[in-house]
């Protein structure tokens, strides 16, 4: 097997991996801070992809150009979901929280179906189509962009969470909300922030994905299922874990898609998940 091929597989695997990781980090951040699983996370991705597609179809704006706007819009959308929905059910039972985000998932899918129909849409001829050749290795531009964009976004996120005062407060609330409140940290503010940041991560992933993936009402399920696996694999609430597991899953599915068959590319991923969960139910990492 040629070196070229290996590099192509790694680029494409890491590109997908970072995208899974961004989606998973969003999930794990929200879960880590407030123990709520966002079942509508995939639908947030779907919304971001539609936003990206519609901006392209309406104004011809390239997904790469609209990425910061989609991320910012998703940040605000996350805040809105927290303040209008999640905060209302927080004092309720576990079931009411599950049904709230599950209901949101169904609602957003129906909304997309209503306005956009069940058709598949794709961004064509964006800045990021075609291939580039680097030292004899031919790489599809959208995937290189996905790799560069999502790794940069991950870097920014890491800086925010691990290097700023507000990130420190967020981690504090995640590790011990009560102790954090005695230190002046407003838990509700941190919850809102987690929803905002978590949704913005998905917005970035959506923009990058829309360059090489179709958007349709149920597109979220495909990616978010793997993101759930990444969260469980990495350890619930762990950002490092979500990142490592996301990359692992990206590489594994690309490798098995190539070496086994593209229909079976997720089988080794779920097998890895089963093995880790059986041997180490807490996942690979501790909280944040």
């Amino acid at each position: 097997m040629s070196e070229q091929l290996i590099i192509q597989l790694i680029v494409s695997g890491l590109g997908m991996g970072f995208i899974f990781a961004l989606i998973a980090i969003g999930l794990t951040l929200i879960y880590g801070v407030m123990n709520v699983v966002n079942f509508a996370h995939g639908e947030f991705l779907m919304l971001g992809m539609y936003a990206s597609y519609l901006a392209y179809a309406t104004w011809g704006a390239d997904p790469l150009v609209t990425l910061p706007f989609v991320a910012a819009a998703m940040f605000l959308f996350g805040l809105m979901v927290y303040y209008l929905l999640i905060r209302k059910v927080l004092t309720g039972s576990m079931q009411s929280q599950i049904f709230a985000t599950f209901g949101l998932m169904v609602f957003l899918q129906a909304l997309a179906q209503f306005f956009m129909g069940a058709d598949y849409f794709a961004v064509q001829n964006s800045y990021l189509s075609g291939v580039i050749t680097l030292g004899g290795v031919i790489l599809p531009v959208p995937q290189v962009a996905a790799l560069v964009g999502s790794s940069l976004a991950t870097l920014v996120l890491y800086g925010l969470v691990f290097r700023t005062g507000v990130g420190r407060q967020l981690r504090a609330a995640s590790q011990d909300a009560q102790a954090a409140s005695t230190l002046g940290i407003n838990a509700s503010g941190m919850y809102a922030l987690a929803w905002g940041i978590g949704s913005a991560c998905v917005g970035v992933a959506a923009s990058l994905l829309s360059n090489f993936y179709y958007v349709f009402p149920r597109v979220g399920a495909i990616f978010v299922l793997l993101a759930y696996v990444a969260v469980a694999l990495g350890g619930f609430g762990s950002i490092h874990g979500a990142l490592v597991a996301g990359l692992l899953i990206g590489l594994l599915q690309v490798a098995s898609g190539f070496f086994i068959s593209s229909e079976l590319k997720f089988v080794p991923v779920y097998m890895l998940y089963l093995i880790v969960v059986l041997l180490r139910p807490r996942g690979l990492f501790g909280k944040m």
Binding site: Q175, A179, I185
Partner: peptide, 14 residues
């Protein structure tokens, strides 16, 4: 009730 996954310094800063 320290934050276990944070350094001593970060705990103090908080």
């Amino acid at each position: 009730r320290l934050f276990p996954y944070m350094s001593v310094l970060e705990n103090l800063q908080l």
